[in-house]
């Protein structure tokens, strides 16, 4: 396997009894990038990350992380890995400082490294005033900053983040991502799982995972440009009725309502899709406008996973 990839997998599969949580996933993740796993809950994102960290043994398939085979060489890899779990997993009855000191000791940083790294983390993650506070008393955003500070204290080459910002307000989420871009710029490869579109859009590379399978991969831009559907935006006074009408058409893959507007995904092979829809909605009054629009990430997601109310009707 080529060493220029931080992560490579071939046919990565994990079964729990009869249920296949991860099904033949192939990944090539370049170094020093933020790579996102986008998928609904239960799609197999966490299971994949746990296999990549060596926490779970794959049922079949091959994994190499930073050139180490996992799980065989997982122990040697641990020093170079940072892992931030979905739920807060530091000690709530220890203070912020004690938690950081604990992680520094566990990764056996030297005395001087220990002091300087904790000092850096204090500055970088705005923990200054919180240092003597028990971790259990922190807010969601503060816990997230502490979690990232602890996971990066030993300057890992590879950082795994499992839905890091699901319990965090938008401002904290933006700050959090600024820190991630800093880390990536310093050469850290970051793998982040999310079900939030605005987060996914920030990633350098993205894998859309649905029911354990990798259904689309690429940069957010290329995914949006290469969408396998015609995207129409419909403005109407009665979007519910329009949606009901559209959902009856066999060439409509899905309809999503965004406020008073609708996004309809049409089968690309539909001849004159725009005209057809305009004709269909003629009776909806003069306020009804139909136009072609560039796809957003949610359209890509819906198109790739086939998951939305509209998609079920169309299917």
């Amino acid at each position: 396997m080529a060493p220029d990839y931080a992560i490579e997998t071939r046919g990565l599969t994990r079964r729990f009894g009869k249920f296949t949580a991860v099904d033949g996933v192939d990944l090539n993740i370049p170094r020093a990038q933020i790579y996102g796993f986008l998928g609904p809950n239960g799609a197999g994102k966490s299971t994949t990350i746990r296999m990549l960290c060596g926490l779970l043994e794959p049922s079949s398939g091959e994994v190499a992380v930073l050139g180490y085979r996992v799980p065989e060489q997982a122990e040697a890899l641990r020093r170079k890995l940072g892992y931030m779990t979905q739920s807060f997993s530091l000690y709530t009855d220890l203070t912020v400082r004690e938690n950081l000191e604990f992680m520094a000791e566990v990764f056996t940083l030297s005395k001087s490294q220990c002091a300087s790294r904790i000092h850096d983390a204090e500055q970088r993650y705005f923990l200054g005033e919180l240092m003597e506070q028990r971790a259990g008393t922190l807010s969601g955003g503060q816990k997230q900053r502490l979690g990232l500070a602890a996971a990066t204290l030993h300057a890992p080459e590879m950082l795994f983040l499992d839905e890091p910002t699901s319990a965090v307000d938008p401002q904290s989420r933006r700050d959090f991502w600024d820190r991630l871009f800093d880390l990536a710029a310093e050469g850290t490869t970051i793998l982040v799982s999310t079900h939030l579109m605005d987060e996914a859009e920030r990633c350098h590379g993205l894998a859309i995972i649905s029911r354990g399978k990798l259904v689309a991969e690429g940069s957010p831009q290329s995914l949006m440009q290469g969408i396998d559907a015609l995207v129409l935006e419909i403005e109407s006074e009665d979007p519910r009725r329009c949606a009901a009408l559209l959902n009856q058409q066999p060439y409509v893959k899905s309809v999503t309502q965004i406020g008073t507007r609708l996004h309809a995904l049409l089968d690309k092979r539909t001849q004159g899709g725009l005209k057809q829809v305009q004709g269909l909605l003629k009776g909806m009054g003069p306020g009804c406008q139909v136009r072609e629009t560039p796809a957003n990430l949610e359209d890509v997601f819906v198109s790739a996973t086939g998951r939305s109310n509209g998609a079920q009707h169309a299917a």
Binding site: G54, F107, T108
Partner: peptide, 14 residues
Amino acid sequence: ERGNLELLITTPVS
């Protein structure tokens, strides 16, 4: 139970 172990086992602690 508290989830600490999930973090702990990704560290070099044997």
